[in-house]
Design a protein around this nucleic acid. Structure first.
Lengths: 146, 146
DNA sequence: CTCTCTGCAAAGAATTTGCAAACAC
DNA sequence: GTGTTTGCAAATTCTTTGCAGAGAG
């Protein structure tokens, strides 16, 4: 194996190690796969499967299949930010998003607050919350004043 | 108006007042509408639009249109509990669900903990969280031990 | 009588699946 | 070579929309 074992479990910090990790996890490094990974790392923001397909110049079905394979081995995660298509991003720091259920405004929850939330939920339920798959829902300051 | 004004703003506690509230909010009390409301109040659990249509013996399109109309006037709310169809329930107490992202196990977050979560999020973000539209995501105790 | 609401049928968006050819290793 | 992966096309699932007739107030 040309890749250190620890890359088989940790998320990849950059495109180069992500491509190595793809191989290390037993997936072939095909052209479409390489392009999908590059699209995710190049975008700097979560992308829908369709955006990935366009950026990677591959079929949407291949984008979906690759995103699913990459997610299965822990290199990619997807999230839902509203009622539209899922968004995909390289696995990494887990970010808690707060979204307004009226106007759609979104913000990122400060890490300290996210930690408080996780602690409260964990204590009460036994679950270990990640808070990164669906947003926390509520009203933004503007919409709350009405 | 035969219905006290306050029913025009509060969620309805039972089927009877819900039907009155439908009228009070300017919606006609058609057969399908009545049946949709009855289905939601009779089920005792959130239902998908398809389940509502079957229970109400109406077309799915009518179920969707009625659920949307009822939601618009504040009598119904819908939530997402995973990747499947949305679930609809009478508007009422807001319940925070915690869901395991691996096995799908779900539990209801204790009100005290939910209040702590809301306070932390509100303080950090200014948003007033409801936590009742999407579940809080993470790992259940069983899946966490692996 | 008027305007809302209905069922049916068709359209739409997001995602999944079947299959034969192309490709990675 | 062998098993994975691809593109294309079609199927699925959930939800929305158009329309002419039925029904509520």
């Amino acid at each position: 194996m040309t890749v250190p074992a620890h890359t088989a479990l940790a998320p990849a910090p950059d495109l180069h190690s992500a491509l190595a990790a793809v191989r290390a996890r037993g997936l072939r490094l095909s052209g479409a796969r390489r392009a999908v990974v590059a699209a995710l790392y190049g975008a700097g923001r979560p992308l829908s499967a369709d955006e990935v397909a366009r950026a990677a110049c591959c079929d949407p079905a291949s984008a979906y299949r690759n995103l699913e394979a990459l997610e299965r081995v822990g290199l990619v995660r997807h999230m839902h930010v509203g009622h539209s298509a899922a968004l995909y991003a390289p696995a990494g720091a887990r970010t808690a998003i707060v979204a307004c259920e009226r106007c759609g405004a979104r913000t990122i929850l400060a890490p300290r607050a996210a930690a408080q939330v996780r602690a409260a939920v964990r204590l009460a339920s036994g679950f270990i919350p990640h808070l990164d798959h669906f947003p926390l829902t509520g009203l933004c300051p503007g919409c709350a004043n009405r």
